[in-house]
């Protein structure tokens, strides 16, 4: 005979408390802000969905969102194929492989604000290696003055910083493919392209899904690098969503609209991740380990 009691609740209590104070309570505070107009410590008015409507109509938000989507799309479209190509080109074993992996992993170890600073100097027209070289070649490159240059600099910086992550993930995925697949493909007379299309790419799907999600979330929330590089400028050229949010919340102290937008921002990322995940899961059958 089994006896039932509620002791198990005690065991999950620590986790419940941690999650409550680290996620649920702050999130609910934001929800609280988003539906009230707080005028002072004791003065607040319930405004319903007013802030949401206001934020949704804000043209600055529309521009930031457009820039953000374009940026994340560019990041994914470049970093994922480039990462796969890098992984395919890496030596499979031996000291060359170790050396390549260490070199590749270096950018990943650098904190975001340091990356921003490095590129800020690197891109300077007067003393920066890249900036001076580009100007020396006759190109008019100036990331502090030209919006396009600033935007491209942020993009290249992100590619430099994060492509290695995709490359490392893909490299690990490639190493996990048993040798027999390649041997069978040779016997079947498959071309290099067919091997990639029918063996390597399907087997990489799992790690690429993780890479895609990580890169999407990260790039969609990018803040530090453009902030350090140009502070969101010139003009608003590199003001992405998180910076727009910071300006609203900390700069203008518009807590209501900022909170409303936070929730929208959160839902966009959640929705996009869900869509990516479902698409990739249904693109083919789930990989099962053969061993």
């Amino acid at each position: 005979m089994k006896t039932y009691n509620n002791k198990a609740w005690l065991l999950v209590l620590p986790v419940v408390l941690c999650v409550a104070f680290s996620a649920i309570v702050p999130l609910m505070t934001v929800v609280n802000y988003s539906v009230q107009d707080i005028l002072g410590p004791d003065q607040k008015v319930f405004v319903g969905t007013e802030w949401f409507k206001l934020v949704m109509r804000d043209p600055e938000l529309h521009e930031a969102l457009g820039r953000q989507i374009l940026f994340s799309a560019a990041v994914l479209a470049i970093e994922i194929p480039l990462g796969i190509l890098l992984a395919l080109a890496l030596p499979a074993q031996g000291w060359r492989s170790s050396l390549a992996l260490v070199l590749l992993a270096m950018p990943l170890l650098i904190p975001q604000n340091v990356v921003g600073t490095i590129w800020q100097i690197y891109g300077r027209g007067d003393i920066g290696l890249a900036g001076a070289a580009l100007n020396g070649l006759g190109l008019d490159y100036n990331y502090t003055g030209d919006s396009m240059d600033a935007w491209l600099t942020v993009l290249v910086m992100d590619i430099w910083h994060w492509t290695p992550l995709i490359a490392l993930l893909a490299f690990a995925g490639l190493r996990a493919i048993p040798e027999a697949y390649y041997q069978a493909a040779r016997i079947d007379g498959a071309s290099r392209l067919a091997v990639f299309r029918f063996i390597q790419l399907p087997k990489l799907r799992g790690v690429l899904l993780i890479g895609l999600l990580l890169r999407f979330m990260d790039s969609f929330m990018i803040y530090t690098e453009p902030f350090v590089l140009t502070g969101g400028g010139p003009g608003n050229a590199t003001t992405f969503l998180s910076q727009y949010l910071t300006q609203k919340a900390v700069g203008q102290f518009d807590l209501g609209p900022a909170a409303a937008f936070s929730l929208i921002y959160f839902l966009i990322i959640l929705l996009a991740c869900f869509v990516f995940y479902s698409l990739l899961q249904n693109a083919g059958p789930t990989e099962k380990a053969e061993h």
Binding site: P178, A180, Y181, Q183, A184, R186, I187, D188, G189, A190, F198, I199, P202, G284, P285, E287, E290, H291
Partner: peptide, 29 residues
Amino acid sequence: PTEQRNIAQVFQFPVIYDTMTVFDNLAFP
């Protein structure tokens, strides 16, 4: 090279192209 030898080989672990149908697998070579 293998592809010119007219040899077929079956390995210890089944090797199939798992994005393909059974028909496409058999048709692949």
